[in-house]
Design a binder for these strands. Structure first.
Length: 457
DNA sequence: ACGATTTGACCTAA
DNA sequence: TTAGGTCAAATCGT
């Protein structure tokens, strides 16, 4: 939609719709302003919605405003509807299409068959509004809407991100893959899973990045107009991702990538139960506990963890760096700690505050060498560092809550988490294991590698 | 049985 | 003519 179109159409909008549009735009402007403030001062103490939420609000408001305009222009008998169609068929969009197989006036689909008899749905000359017809898809039959296809894509919002994962908070359906000239990796094509259910036109193209094969270059085309159901959309969390460009506007959902594959098992030791008494945390809601058990996040992200010493794996143990007021000397690992059972809880009193030293250990899982088992003992009483780049994290909370926020468990803010022993298993390709295990960003806390040892000595 | 993915054919734009 | 994008039958996975 161009400026002239907006202007010409605005003339036919009712006063009520004009008010709606202005309201939406103003709302978007407010969200944009908030986002600007947040970006200028990302570590401010004042509570504010996450950048993701703000960007979502901006895009939602503007998209809704545009939808109102577009819905007005596409009403039957609307002169502007004709103008819109003319726009879509003019110039670069106006090339005739083969097989006038769809009659938008009758609402019926006409098929054409290719030389090999394959059934096809052709494109009509120029763009036309979506019209439903039944098509066979594999062995199932589903309602299909023939859309404006690539013509509408010309003016679609597009942006590209570089991310360690292909996941985002939308459900996608793969519809194609192509080898690309002078490119080592093929390009995969995805459409929104709700393309036919909700006429959502969003698509994305994913390709392994040439410069960094560990990263995915994802191009998003079009903004989602669907309302995904909660159980089908993954939870949005930030991870390693970068905005590469934004051709027009930026969809806030694009750069927000979900977390790596994590298998979380939670267990409670006597030590940690007693430790909860040392803090103001309350016991975890049993319902929450059931949710935590074996909670899985699907994502292929590689997060560096672990070290290898020759051919044998070694444990890596970490202490929270925010315990600088505490005794940093853990006294090494006691001989009887060598083995599979960890025991690192140490109660330390600093001034009037009794703290638990948070430790974690990382070890290759014996059962599955592609997995890393991280055991967290104790809980953080420190504030997570503001050096973290994870905007989704509540920095004032402890690591447990941070994790839970990142993982998107529902209503986690309403729960005060006790200090469980938490074992996280991460699925990581071993070849991606770097030597430096202290700089990973699995959680928002900074860890010091205070020792590595061979297991089972 | 049915939804999702694969993959070769087809289509359009350049 | 060619490269990139899409379709849809075949196939896979649950």
């Amino acid at each position: 939609m161009n400026y002239n179109m907006l202007c010409s159409e605005s003339g036919s909008l009712s006063a009520r719709k004009k008010r709606e549009i202005i309201k939406k735009i103003v709302k978007g402007q407010k969200a944009a302003t908030q986002l600007k403030i947040l970006l200028q001062n990302p570590f401010g103490t004042a509570p504010s919605p996450s950048s993701h939420q703000l960007m979502t609000n901006v895009l939602t408001s503007f998209t809704q405003a545009l939808s109102i305009i577009q819905s007005s222009s596409s009403q039957p008998g609307s002169a502007n509807g004709v103008a819109r169609r003319d726009l879509l068929t003019s110039g670069a969009y106006g090339s005739p299409l083969t097989g006038s197989s769809h009659d938008p006036m009758s609402g019926h689909c006409r098929e054409k068959r290719s030389q090999n008899g394959r059934r096809e749905l052709g494109y009509r000359e120029g763009g036309f509004d979506e019209l439903g017809c039944v098509r066979k898809y594999g062995r199932s039959v589903s309602l299909v809407y023939i859309s404006e296809k690539r013509f509408s894509r010309k003016g679609a919002v597009t942006w590209t991100i570089l991310s360690s994962t292909t996941d985002d908070d939308h459900a996608w359906r793969k519809y194609g893959q192509k080898g690309i000239l002078n490119s080592e990796f093929p390009r995969s094509y995805f459409r929104c899973s709700y393309k036919y259910d909700q006429r959502c036109q969003a698509v994305k193209q994913v390709q392994v990045d040439e410069d960094n094969p560990r990263m995915y270059r994802t191009k998003y085309i079009g903004i989602h107009t669907c309302n995904p159901t909660p159980n089908t959309a993954t939870h949005p969390t930030t991870w390693e991702s970068y905005f590469l460009n934004s051709d027009h506007d930026s969809d806030p959902r694009g750069p927000l990538i979900t977390s790596p594959t994590l298998f979380i098992k939670q267990d409670f030791s006597k030590e940690t139960h007693t430790s909860s008494d040392l803090t103001d945390h309350k016991l975890l809601d049993p319902i929450m506990l059931s949710d935590l058990k074996d909670f899985e996040l699907s994502n292929p992200t590689v997060v560096p963890l672990g070290k290898e010493f020759g051919n044998s794996t070694a444990d890596n143990v970490y202490s929270c760096t925010d315990s600088q007021n505490l005794d940093m000397d853990f006294g090494g690992v006691a001989p009887d700690d060598f083995g599979t059972h960890f025991h690192f809880d140490k109660g330390v009193t600093t001034g009037a505050v009794t703290s638990m030293i948070k430790t974690k250990q990382v070890q290759l899982d014996k059962e599955n060498p592609n997995m890393y088992e991280t055991t967290f003992v104790g809980h953080h009483t420190c504030n997570a560092t503001t050096m973290s780049t994870h905007s989704e994290i509540d920095y004032s909370s402890t690591a447990w809550e941070s994790y839970l926020l990142k993982f998107g468990l529902p209503n986690v803010q309403d729960h005060h988490i006790s200090s469980p022993n938490l074992t996280i298993k991460e699925e990581l390709p071993k070849e991606d294991t770097p030597s430096d295990v202290t700089s990973h960003n699995l959680d928002p806390n900074i860890w010091i590698d205070y020792g590595a040892r061979r297991d089972g000595i």
